[in-house]
Simulated scan of single mutants.
Amino acid sequence: MAGELGLVARNGAHGPSGEESPYYAPVGNEEAVFTAAYRQGLSVVLKGPTGCGKTRFVEAMAHRLGRPLITVACHDDLTTADLVGRYLLQGDETVWVDGPLTRAVREGAICYLDEVVEARQDTTVVLHPLADHRRQLPIERLGVTLDAAPGFGLVVSYNPGYQSVLKDLKDSTRQRMVAIEFGFPAPELEEQIVAHEAGVDADTAAELVRFGQAIRRLETGGLREVASTRVLVAAGRLTVEGLTMREAATAAIAGPLTDDAVVSRGLAEMIDVYLAAPAG
């Protein structure tokens, strides 16, 4: 299992030149597997819960491999044209504008499709010739088929916790990819991550991680997700601004996790137990 902090990436491209490497603390052999797959031209699927490190991992690996990264946040309305491109009116002319996937194919960038199962299945089918031995992108509207430039890599991610009959990767897509599974890191490593990313001391990080671990052990239907490393970091950052641990945990951890009144009261009680104010 692999895992660490993951921050939501916005659509866009950024290169490694002159930039500091994104912070990533490896848990297992995920870096070796990703590197081997990339060098062999194999596509990668990252599986794991929200906020466990998938996006940050891709950012770090793109930097390490010296490739620009183009990230697409997938959603229900994402169309094939959104990925591949479309004709647009510019002034008095109609011109073709590449989509992010086509740009990555032409430029030899790594294309990262975040939460790919949120996109319609008829959209993701366009990935098949890119994800197998062909490494090609057919663009029907242009009547051309692009060969992926050297350096191109395809990475997708999704959260198995949201799987359903309607939202899942097609088997034909899955079997074209190398899978890397992510989970939350061991407490000691998570404490280091929270301390580093939030800028808090070791004791504060340890308290937040213990609280997060306790939430992850809960068995309740009122929580769709458990406390991720991301929300623990957010709580830590609030304490840096002067909020108490209770205030920070309520705002950054308990609040985002549920709208259920009963579960919210339970989390508030846990905050009192795990993040009690120091005596005196």
Rank of each mutant, 00 (worst) to 15 (best):
V194Y: 03
V209Q: 05
G18L: 02
G236E: 06
D82Y: 00
A276T: 15
T35W: 02
N29R: 14
E59M: 12
D201I: 13
V194L: 07
Y23T: 03
D147L: 06
T244M: 12
K170N: 15
A261M: 07
T220Y: 11
T145N: 11
K170I: 11
R39C: 09
C111K: 03
Q192V: 10
D92T: 12
P187H: 04
A248V: 03
L208H: 11
R64G: 02
P278H: 10
V116K: 02
I253L: 11
G236H: 07
P129R: 04
R86H: 06
V45G: 05
L142K: 13
A131L: 09
G221H: 05
V8S: 13
Y23K: 01
T71F: 07
V165P: 05
L69T: 03
G255D: 11
P256G: 07
A252I: 01
L89M: 05
G3Q: 09
V95M: 12
L46E: 03
T80L: 05
T204W: 01
N29S: 07
V33C: 06
Y24N: 01
L232H: 08
A73F: 07
G143A: 11
E219S: 12
D147E: 15
A13T: 13
L257K: 01
T239E: 06
N159D: 09
A60N: 13
T124V: 13
A179Q: 07
A198Q: 04
E197M: 13
G161M: 08
V126E: 05
A227I: 03
L42A: 00
A249H: 03
D122R: 12
A252M: 11
G212H: 04
L154Q: 02
V45I: 15
P100W: 04
A254T: 11
N159K: 11
V33D: 08
D77Q: 10
H63G: 08
G41H: 01
Q192R: 13
Q192C: 12
